[in-house]
Design a protein around this nucleic acid. Sequence first.
DNA 1: CCGGATATTGCATACGTAGTCACAACTGCT
DNA 2: AGCAGTTGTGACTACGTATGCAATATCCGG
Lengths: 346, 346
Amino acid sequence: MMGNGPIQNRKRRATSYDVARLAGVSQSAVSRSFKPGASIAPETRDRVMAAATRLGYQPDAIARGLITKRSGIVAILISNLTNLYYPEVLAELSQELSARDMRVLLFSLANESEVDRVLDQIWRYRVDGVISAARLTDAQIRQFGERGVPLVLYNRAAETVPCASVSCDSAGGERELVTRLLDVGHARFAIVAGPEDSTVGEERVAAARALLERAGHPDVPLARGRYSYESGEACMRELLRQGPAPDAVICANDVMAIGAMDAARAHDLRVPEQISIVGFDGVAPARWASYRLTTIRQPVRRMTRAAIAMLAERIDNPDLIAERRVFSGELILGASARIPAAQDYR
Amino acid sequence: MMGNGPIQNRKRRATSYDVARLAGVSQSAVSRSFKPGASIAPETRDRVMAAATRLGYQPDAIARGLITKRSGIVAILISNLTNLYYPEVLAELSQELSARDMRVLLFSLANESEVDRVLDQIWRYRVDGVISAARLTDAQIRQFGERGVPLVLYNRAAETVPCASVSCDSAGGERELVTRLLDVGHARFAIVAGPEDSTVGEERVAAARALLERAGHPDVPLARGRYSYESGEACMRELLRQGPAPDAVICANDVMAIGAMDAARAHDLRVPEQISIVGFDGVAPARWASYRLTTIRQPVRRMTRAAIAMLAERIDNPDLIAERRVFSGELILGASARIPAAQDYR
DNA sequence: CCGGATATTGCATACGTAGTCACAACTGCT
DNA sequence: AGCAGTTGTGACTACGTATGCAATATCCGG
């Protein structure tokens, strides 16, 4: 017996013609065999599939994309992957896209200036759609419209251009945190902000400031970090150096809050007895026993699913109107702030 | 004046023919204008480029790939992105590939059974090469050889099939840690291992055990985690429940070590005075002030660069012989173990 | 047994680019 | 002026698939 296991030529990959020849049908029949709803006799399909398996044939996605105008690829733009929040988002996006039979072309930006270079690549690869967790200018966003490439913004919204987006309600979450901090009588607030060009960061800070001002705390000291642990530490040290120790520190993200906690403890401040520290995001390390950070958790799973659902809709129907979906964050009562647990706010 | 800014048809994207017509040249000339070393007159190229800019034309990578047999895409396989170590690796790989003008097609696996599905996608997309930080069977690795797709394994090596790989010397690093722990007189060891199917994890554990055995510690208690913080905590609790508290715990990765530290502290054990805890990897949180983990840092940057260099070589020359590059880890003296700082080992 | 409806099939072509080849236009030289 | 060599150009085709269209095979009721 000669056996009929897989045969494949090491040099050239099998094409639909090779399969057609082996199965004794036309190339069209092979193509149709691989297309779900196509008009093909069951036994023909079986013969084709057997031949295909034998040759290790898979339809070439590149060639297919050329004719169908669909690459099956979604580009994901992420500013800096070391942010600790993004890997989680990326993992979810990747899972969900994979489940929908789409591939992920990943672009991680070291800095903003790379965006245009990356966009060029995106046009070249004819991606079916883009999810961007990186900052885009309005002009850049407009290009997507002009080129007919569906775009969904993740955790940022376009300012003047209408564009689909999902985000977490920064202002609402921040207000919830600050309200509670105020209610328990915190008096000396301080803020650890993100970089000025971070949309969500500024939203969070603005919301906190507005509420504090209304409550009689006009000039809250503020230090700016770059979302990293080290910068959180540095900000806290700076705040401690500049004046009397605050008794409540509002940080623009969890990782900086963690850095701030460590810095506060290094200054022999007990958290939360002497100083309350709150963050934003709800990343995994915030739950670690050494921190147990009080924070707002972004509903990452729901947000990523929403983003992909919106993108898929727009791939099927490119002229769909822009829509913004904003999810509420969930207050996580950790042990890093003196916030009473069970109480009724509305 | 009508202006000569970008003109683009919202419906159809411009092709090289459109550009050719506008520039008054042939399609070939357009193609050559975009190919670096091609034979084209400078002024022709300028005319073409002007027309291209005007139409917003970019060569279509899909169509180009069909003819050149190069997609410019490298697939990256990663088992679980939530591992905290991988995002760093991914970020580095992504940066470096982008610098070499290659795109990243990301596949993140929720579980091993997905590998075959993912490989199918890889064949379909004609990726130029693959870097895998996920576990592959020998049969799967062999397929790469048969199909002529260059493959570089990251932090794992094939068992019976020759295959290019880069990794960090697990055994060597682990031996360095254990040697030092022994030298200072630690006596009651325990191990927090990774899952049994983790190659590097088992290497680390085996190396530690072998050395301990030779030093007169034959049956070191062992608990198995899944590389997560929670599992590290759970393992430590289990070890503490099972017998007398160990005075040195060797963990298969940093995140579990961190969990173990928190669990030990929850049991009122002082780290490192009463119990030394060491990890492996050198992830960012290991450096946080609450942990300051003593660990072996993997030279991620050098490893990723090496992986990409090896891959690039093999894309240019597919018949290149297999090679394994093993990098030594660097001992990071944190504050989680009673290990003397300056001392001469060889 | 016939007409028409339906299910399959193959042929031919399009997708957008790169590259081969032949040829035209120059160049520098004798 | 004539010739070999160089440079630039356009016509044409291949890449591997999907699909419209026409042709064929099959089926059904009358």
